[in-house]
Amino acid sequence: MDVTGFQELIAELTEKINGEPLDANLEARLNDEFGPGSPLYEAIFNACIKGTEEGWMCNREAAGIRYGRVLKASDATHGFSVDVVDMDNVIGPHHAHPNGEIDMIMPLTKDAAFDSRPAGWCVYGPGSAHHPTVTQGRALVLYLLPQGAIQFTPAGAN
């Protein structure tokens, strides 16, 4: 697996959700059709593990979180950027999602949860904000951001 192969996997997913509102219906659909155990979820999960091991994914670190933007928003990914983070029992920096955010949760520790959610998908609508939090172990989290839009909140402002 390399960045090109990873982009092809992501494009397979983003083609299926392109143009859909980022809401509870999309979250339910992602979990039903592409949840843990599905071929696409497992292929992306395995690619994230491999990319992290090889160092082309999660190649930066700050405050105990390994992270990195793997793909910029482009036509190839239907306007979504892709970031992947590696978090182990940590609260991340507060940020807002001007256009929403789709998260693929991949526990590396059996009971690890992202924002209190187990393995699967989580969708935040446009204008939402949070402190991304992993509890009960370690997880990889893939973020799909429409047009790559994310706004980090200045320290102490939230």
Rank of each mutant, 00 (worst) to 15 (best):
A119L: 00
N89H: 08
I105S: 03
A112E: 04
A112V: 01
I91K: 13
K110F: 06
G92N: 10
D83V: 14
S116W: 05
P98Q: 07
R117Y: 12
A113M: 12
T77E: 03
I105G: 04
G100N: 11
S74N: 06
N89F: 02
T109Y: 04
P93R: 15
M104W: 08
G79T: 05
A73M: 01
A113C: 15
P118L: 02
H97T: 13
N99S: 13
H78E: 12
A73Y: 04
D88E: 14
H97G: 10
T77V: 01
F80I: 03
G100S: 13
H97Q: 10
R117N: 14
P107I: 07
G79I: 03
D83K: 08
D88T: 09
V85Y: 05
P93W: 12
P93G: 15
I102R: 08
M104A: 01
P118D: 06
V82A: 05
V82Y: 01
D103T: 13
P107K: 02
N99E: 15
H95V: 13
A113H: 02
D111L: 02
V82K: 08
I91D: 04
V84N: 09
I105V: 12
P118G: 10
V90R: 08
G79A: 04
D75R: 04
T109R: 08
G100W: 08
S116M: 01
F114W: 13
A96D: 15
I102F: 04
S116R: 12
L108Q: 09
P98W: 10
R117L: 10
A73T: 03
A112H: 00
E101G: 00
D103L: 05
G120N: 07
G120V: 10
I91M: 12
L108P: 03
F80Y: 14
A76G: 03
I102C: 07
T77A: 03
A73P: 03
